[in-house]
């Protein structure tokens, strides 16, 4: 009995020794920050008040209701939604089309994939600098059309341009995944469709698209989750205090509160609200994935049962 306890102890000690770094890391850089931020979001800690006191839910209530102080709060959420509306469908459709084209037995598939992937390995700051200069009044685009439009400082074009950058930058990665999903579609489905007299477009619509539905869902959810977090591009291009109101997304506003206003309690509250939104979407994603997995398992069981029945 004693030997068993000793062995148990030793086994546990070994296990915990292996995950000790993880536990320390997890507590210091995941758990503690979240707790500190949660506590601070209930105080009035800011540059103006470095000696904070507890204020309960005031920060949250003020954020949601006080339009005089947090004028941009709701409009920044709206901007974020607008950004998602501009990027997610465009990106999805473009990915589908490009992947379908690449999947149509053409030469140089690998070459195209490589070229499209370059933005994904470009340092984001460098890519933003490149685009910023391309879209400048004296940049590439204006040179080509010999115009003089300040795309990034114009309220009506700025967000569209940033959305375009994201779609352009993410295409290579998306195509890579979509293409492999398309390659996994059972070829006999195409053959069957062809027998029914389906053309290329009909095959795409009735075989390819349903076949890659899980991938489309995956893109939809990850697109929404990353859409909520958009803001880095804007910080690189405009700094944290831009006058261009149409690019002030939620995360940008969070940075503005943190960096320009040094209002840490409100920035923390905004972090938590963002977390809540994203959590909802993540849970939806899990649900969908699990539903898929369950469906697959059921199918498998059914097939097995049928096979067994046939044997009998």
């Amino acid at each position: 009995m004693k030997a068993y306890t000793k062995q148990l102890l030793k086994r546990n000690a070994t296990g915990y020794a292996f995950i000790l770094p993880l536990l320390i890391y997890f507590i210091v850089f995941q758990l503690a920050p979240m707790i500190i931020a949660l506590v601070i979001s209930f105080t009035d800690y800011s540059l103006a008040n470095l000696d904070p006191s507890f204020v309960g839910f005031d920060n949250y209530i003020e954020l949601f209701t006080n339009k005089a102080v947090y004028q941009n709060f709701w409009s920044s959420l709206l901007t974020t939604f607008l950004y998602m509306l501009l990027t997610v469908p465009t990106s999805m459709i473009l990915t589908l089309i490009v992947s379908a084209l690449l999947n149509s037995k053409i030469k140089g598939e690998k070459f195209f994939k490589t070229i499209f992937y370059i933005p994904s390995v470009t340092v984001s700051v460098a890519m933003m600098v490149m685009w910023k200069q391309m879209l400048a009044p004296d940049g590439l685009i204006n040179q080509i059309f010999s115009s003089n439009i300040d795309f990034l400082n114009n309220e009506s074009t700025a967000l569209v341009m940033i959305a375009l950058m994201s779609v352009w930058g993410g295409l290579g990665y998306n195509v890579l995944i979509m293409l492999s999903a398309m390659k996994n579609i059972d070829p006999s489905l195409y053959e069957a469709a062809e027998m029914d007299g389906a053309g290329a477009f009909q095959k795409f619509l009735y075989v390819t698209v349903p076949g890659v539905m899980p991938t489309i869902f995956f893109f939809l959810v990850t697109g929404l989750i990353s859409g909520f977090q958009v803001g880095e591009q804007m910080v690189i291009i405009y700094g944290t205090a831009t006058q261009v109101g149409s690019v002030r997304t939620y995360v940008y506003e969070m940075f503005y509160q943190m960096r320009e206003m040094s209002n840490f309690s409100v920035a923390s509250a905004m972090s938590y609200f963002l977390f809540a939104i994203i959590l909802v979407f993540t849970l939806i994603q899990f649900r969908l994935q699990n539903a898929d997995a369950i469906k697959e398992r059921r199918m498998l069981k059914k097939i097995k049962r049928e096979a067994a029945n046939e044997k009998n």
Partner: peptide, 24 residues
């Protein structure tokens, strides 16, 4: 249990952690 808790933290995106991590 530990693995599940730690896996759960994957749901906290990096952007959300920026302010808390700065504070710590």
């Amino acid at each position: 249990t530990i693995f599940k808790i730690i896996l759960f933290s994957m749901m906290v995106p990096g952007t959300v952690m920026l302010v808390p991590n700065f504070l710590i």
